[in-house]
Write a protein that binds this DNA or RNA. Structure first.
Lengths: 230, 230
DNA sequence: TTTTAAATGATAGTATTACTATTTCATTTA
DNA sequence: TAAATGAAATAGTAATACTATCATTTAAAA
């Protein structure tokens, strides 16, 4: 059985839907490659066009600018991850196991899963770690948010918050804890590789240690939690 | 008594020390204002020069490029914050109180403290929240790190990690928890104001709720912690 | 099969950004 | 008073971030 995963993307994320044409798919494929290799700052539509064998103007027919393309990629990633999480958590009732699987899915390295041929999920995961927060750290977050560009991120966050409440319905900050889990799963991996003294994982470069740290943080917090204030 | 706080900055952060000349201090003062107002992306040396009444080339004599200026500002902020933390925690022995004061200093709004006339600490704090992570989220983190540009951040992290161990010497991830506290103190505030559904603080826009969340997270975690794994 | 529309490619052009080189002017020091 | 040093202005260049036009290819509809 070979299934093709199609993620329905918000229309406002693009000028023309890149999934529907050969050039569009190439834009996604090669932008992931280029951003991962050289970073978002040095990434330009000119370089991308050269890589693809198209023109700058050609790329602009699909995306308003490179920042919109980054938002598209992050939105795609969060949608894909939510699907993955839902899939892996299917039929599991124990919220304890759910949360552990979830943290694993967030912090562990991603293997390109061939569910889409033009998206390399492993590279995309690395982009999210290093560039993901630049999607919302702008002066126009609020407008972008009104256009629902961050909906996939918020949906994933809600999903996680729900599981936290399943585990302990008295927990007072399910959504903040959910966004903390997501962000820390990425940031601690980034720190481990690039600014290791900000972590306790030294030079081990082992994502599994990040998983353990976050599990520890999360479970200590929600296990011992009652609604009282101390 | 009127004291002038002078922070000794790493020489590699600048081309010429901005603290020592009138133009240099204006660069710091007005870059903080401009970045806070319009965001780091739209900030250029040209605009800054116009604001100051100098020229683009004049700014380049102080800073290699705008990213270096951002690193300078963040380094200054972390140094200032470490001083502030050390000052406020002086003579307190109870690590419980220390941690609470610390979280308060990190997440609560900053009031411009007039310790330096050309740095508006309140605006700078807002810059750190929205732009701070862009200082290290680059392809050249590792080289910048070798030049010790992030030392002030790492020093603050160490300081916090030390207090965590004072509280509970069995805690296994003091440094990761320290960087988590720092980052979340900022990110949850950013989310609260711009993507509120990622938090539990809704439209309250009250930094004190972020303080409570982080306190809760931290103390639950280090209070109940023994070195065993579950 | 023809018609028509959509998508692409090629070319050119503009405004802004990021940065450099050169010269001028002022100040210090010998 | 001359030489050396440093600050600032001027004038550039190369790259970036776009936009516009038009010819051509490709795909869908009649």
């Amino acid at each position: 059985m070979e299934l093709q995963l199609q993620i329905k993307m918000n229309e406002k994320l693009f000028v023309r839907n890149p999934e529907q044409t050969e050039l569009g798919r190439k834009i996604i494929q090669f932008s992931i490659q280029l951003i991962q290799e050289n970073g978002f700052e040095s990434f330009t539509f000119k370089k991308l066009a050269e890589e693809i064998g198209s023109t700058e103007a050609g790329i602009y027919r699909y995306f308003e600018n490179k920042h919109r393309l980054l938002i598209y990629l992050t939105a795609w990633y969060w949608s894909w991850l939510e699907f993955r999480v839902t899939f892996h958590l299917n039929n599991i009732s124990d919220p304890n196991i759910k949360l552990k699987k979830l943290i694993q899915l967030l912090a562990a390295n991603v293997v390109d899963d061939d569910s889409t041929m033009y998206v390399n999920e492993s590279l995309l995961h690395q982009i999210i770690i290093a560039e993901g927060s630049k999607a919302y750290l702008t002066k126009h977050v609020s407008e972008d948010n009104k256009d629902r560009l961050f909906k996939p991120y918020k949906d994933l966050c809600s999903l996680i918050a729900g599981i936290i409440l399943e585990y302990n319905s008295n927990y007072t900050h399910p959504r903040s804890l959910a966004s903390t889990i997501i962000e820390m799963a990425h940031l601690q991996v980034f720190f481990m590789h690039n600014l290791p003294s900000l972590t306790d994982f030294g030079e081990s470069k082992n994502e599994q240690l990040v998983v353990e740290y976050i599990e520890d943080l999360v479970f200590c917090s929600i296990r011992n939690h009652t609604s009282r204030r101390d």
